[in-house]
Design a protein around this nucleic acid. Sequence first.
RNA 1: GGGGGUGUAGUUCAGUUUGGUUAGAACGCUUGCCUGUCACGCAAGAGGUCGCGAGUUCGAGUCUCGUCACUCCCGCCA
Length: 588
Amino acid sequence: MKRTHHCCELTDADVDKKVVLMGWVQNRRDHGGVIFIDLRDREGITQVVFNPGVSKTAHEKAGEIRNEYVLGIKGTVIPRPDDMINPKRKTGAVEVMVDELSIFSKAETPAFQIEDRIEASESIRLQYRYLDLRRQQLKNNIMTRHKAATAVRNYLDQNGFIDIETPFLTKSTPEGARDYLVPSRVNPGEFYALPQSPQLFKQLLMIAGFDRYYQIVKCFRDEDLRADRQPEFTQIDMELSFVDEKQIMTVAEGMIVEIFKKVLDMDLVTPFSQITYDQAIERFGLDRPDLRFGLELINVSDIVKDAGFKVFANVVKNGGLVKAINAKGCATFTRKQIDELTDFAGVYKAKGLAWIKIKEDTWQSPIAKFFTDEEKDALKNRLDLQPGDIVFFVADQPKITNEALGQLRNELARRLELVSNDTYEFVWVTHFPLVEYDETEKRYQALHHPFTAPLEEDMEKLSTDPASIKSRAYDLVLNGIEIGGGSIRIHSSELQQKVLKCLGIDDKEANEKFGFLLTALKSGAPPHGGIAFGLDRLIMLLCKEDSIRNVIAFPKTQKATCMLTQAPSKAATAQLQELAIKINKIEE
RNA sequence: GGGGGUGUAGUUCAGUUUGGUUAGAACGCUUGCCUGUCACGCAAGAGGUCGCGAGUUCGAGUCUCGUCACUCCCGCCA
């Protein structure tokens, strides 16, 4: 028996053909006389029929068939009478009358039903992932991922990019995420680190003269998991020589356009909009603004700086920020809803959430009484307050005010259903700060990574005021989610050393950790830069999923375990001895 | 490291508020009947460590404490 068709392709045009299909039993309907089987393969479902009048042996054998058995059937495509056509199915106009049946494999009753409308808990689905992957939704997600990856490869190939593999067994780099370590047997006591990204290798490839590199590559970070974070995840990583920000963005936009065309058959408009980091924080509170809706943050610090409401006045006096969001027409919010929003803001360290409901001729609010008429007028004008509105205030240190109100903005949009899954709003966020002061470690830390070039005009501030330097880094944000980020890199060894020094890494440490890069930069490095996209997140958005686990074939749980293989697991004593590793007593 | 949610039949859940007879439903499964179903139908049946452990009580799925797993979030993730 040799397969002639997939279970998706038979139509009226195939009537009377002898065909062979192979696949899994989706469903069995035994009418005593006639037996219907929905046969499923990767591509779709076709109904096959066993009729004792056509083949007595096949019909008898079909009696023992159960769900998820693996079959091969040979038969004739026959048309269905008009009143028996199933319009819900692509192949619903025909069916295959079987005259020969082969049962390749029996199957135990699956732990959960292989049907999209049946919900199973995620842990049971992860435990039997191969069954879960049989379901249409998950299968579609994986197919979408394949389509997107293929679109990426074709696009980048056509644009002169070369696919080059970089090592997984590599060197631990300071800063950034916690590394996954791999012990070296032949060098007892020493460890490789799995790459958090191929950053340094792709820069070395530029120095080597490959001009344009790309890779769809696994990256590893040993940090706590989230719905959109796995310990191993996939990047579309690329690097280009002799380019500036604009050229990289253009290439990246072209790639995104290609993905959306190939996967969703959607035509995106380019160029994508751009906003500077400072503007994004000012207007949206976050460095990854969701532009699908308004509700912008408005600074009212100057208006309330002398207000009788001491919370506001004191915050401004101490260098803080008072900002507000006017939720138009939402004065109907109940006390309970406001309390929930206050708790929500509290998650982001806001100490409170002040509010004013604008009524026809009065302001209903615990804080309205503290404002003078002038202050009220100023607020009214600045915030465009009209009857029926409710306005929320956060007053705190700038970082907290922006973060809390920015998150509140997203939450309000969710609650008010201002966001549509079918809208895709891209925005480039540019001019990130180069560094950020780390209060706990009492030193500056790179916001992007230590190899990001500072803006030319900010260069002289390296030794005087690092925090005010803007970098040549950019993120691509889609619907409030960062899907990619990159920068123009430093291509001068001297500048690289200066930046490392600024980050508190002295020459000795720099040489130990990045000596090879500093040396390479002295060997003739082209100006270069690049960008990396989180493939999992991108596919998650394309599939309208809430978690990247649903677009990864074999994802890990929140405790970074694999429910299918039970990894990680204990190593044999002999293995550990070979690796010169001793395990500290772990309480059982 | 911290906060929230969930855990009862193979699966998804109800039952827990207010402790009390034999822990229910749907789907799935098994058996029988059925020649036009496609969420087939009809009839019968099997199926439970109420996550685990301790405690309170005459009595615990239900209350208390601990613990484990899954999950969402904060911290963390250049």
